[in-house]
Simulated assay, not measured.
Amino acid sequence: MEVQNCFHCGLDIVKEEEIIFDEKKFCCNGCKTVYEIFSLNDMSCYYDFEKSPGATPLDIKGKYDFLDNEGIVSKLLEFQEDKTAIVSLSIPHIHCSSCIWILENLQRLQKGISTSQVNFPEKKVRITYNPEEVSLKSIVHLLSSIGYEPYISLENYETGKNNVDRSLTYKLGLAFFCFGNIMLLSFPEYFEVKEYWLDNYRPFFRWLIFALSLPSFLYSASGYYVSAYKSIKSGMLNIDIPIALGIVIFFIRSTFDIIMDY
C-alpha cells in the first residue's frame, strides 16, 4: 500500500485525517493553513526550492504572553529607536533553501517588518521592524503560524550570559598570521636581483608560502563558500558569491604560477 506524504511537511498522512485542498494532500489543518497563507500572498514558490520543506505549526496560545511586557522585550531587542527595532531570533527549524527564502521575505506576510536576514549556520533570523505597526509578539506568532517557532530563552537575558561564537575571531586570527608570514617570505621576490641564496631557495620559499596559504584558504574563507553555495542553491544572489569566486580564482592562479615556476 502506497504511503501518502503531506505536501507541506512531508509527514505520513493517516487516511482518516487526510485533508485535500487545491488538489494537494495535507496531514492536518495546520499544514493546510500555512499553504493557504503562502498562496494568498503569492509565495507558493516556497515549495519549488525543496520538496515538503515546512514543519507542522503548533498551538502556542498564551505561550508568549510575556512579550506584552515592555521590559522583557527591551532586553530581547538588539536595537530600538523611534520607529526602528531590531531583534535576532533563534529558529531551530531552519534547514534548507526554502526556509531561508521564506524567512527573508517576512515583510510580504506582515506589515511593519522592513527587512529580515537569515544567518544559516547559527539558525537565526535578524528582523528589522517598526514597533508602532507591529509588536514582537505578533512577529513571534507569525513565525509560529508558518512552522518556524522561535526559541526564546529568558534565562540568558536575565543573567546576562550568552554563548559567544568565537569562530570568526579564530578565522581572522589565522588569516592575519598567514598573511603576515606570507608577505614577509615574499619580500625578496619584489627585488629582481641575481643573488645566490635567493635563486637557490626561491622554490622552497614559494612552496612554504603555498603551505601557509592553505589554512587561510580552506578555513578562514570557508564562511564565504558556504554562504555562496546556499545563495546559489536558493536562487538568490548575494555579495559572497563574487568574493568566493575571486578567492578561488586567485588561489588557482597562484598555485599554477608556483607549479610552473613563473
Rank of each mutant, 00 (worst) to 15 (best):
L245D: 06
S74H: 12
Y190H: 12
S97N: 09
G173W: 09
F177Q: 05
H8S: 11
H95A: 14
R206D: 10
E70Q: 12
I243R: 03
V118E: 00
N105L: 10
P242E: 05
K194V: 10
Y170P: 01
V3K: 15
L58Y: 02
D257M: 11
Y46L: 06
T169M: 13
V134C: 05
F176K: 10
Y148T: 02
I100H: 04
A85M: 01
C99M: 02
E132I: 02
E81V: 11
F205I: 12
A175W: 07
V248N: 06
E155T: 13
F256S: 07
I252S: 01
T159L: 12
A244P: 02
F210I: 10
S135Q: 05
C27M: 09
K233I: 07
C27I: 08
I182A: 05
I247E: 04
S216K: 07
E122Q: 13
E2A: 11
Y196I: 12
C96M: 05
S52M: 09
D12A: 15
I20D: 02
I247T: 04
S116T: 06
K15I: 13
G62Y: 08
G180R: 07
N156T: 11
G235Q: 05
L67T: 00
P203M: 06
I13K: 09
F217L: 14
K230H: 10
F217E: 02
T33G: 02
P203W: 03
A175S: 15
K230D: 05
N41S: 09
E133V: 11
S222G: 04
A55Y: 15
E78R: 14
S222K: 13
L103A: 01
L67C: 04
I209A: 07
L185E: 03
M43K: 07
V164E: 06
Y190L: 14
L245N: 04
D22S: 13
F179Q: 03
E104M: 06
Y170I: 14
L174I: 15
L76W: 06
V140A: 00
I113Y: 01
D12G: 09
E70T: 10
P188G: 03
S74T: 12
E195L: 08
I91K: 01
C9S: 07
G30P: 05
Y190R: 11
V193I: 14
N156Y: 11
Y64P: 00
S52H: 15
K75R: 14
R206T: 07
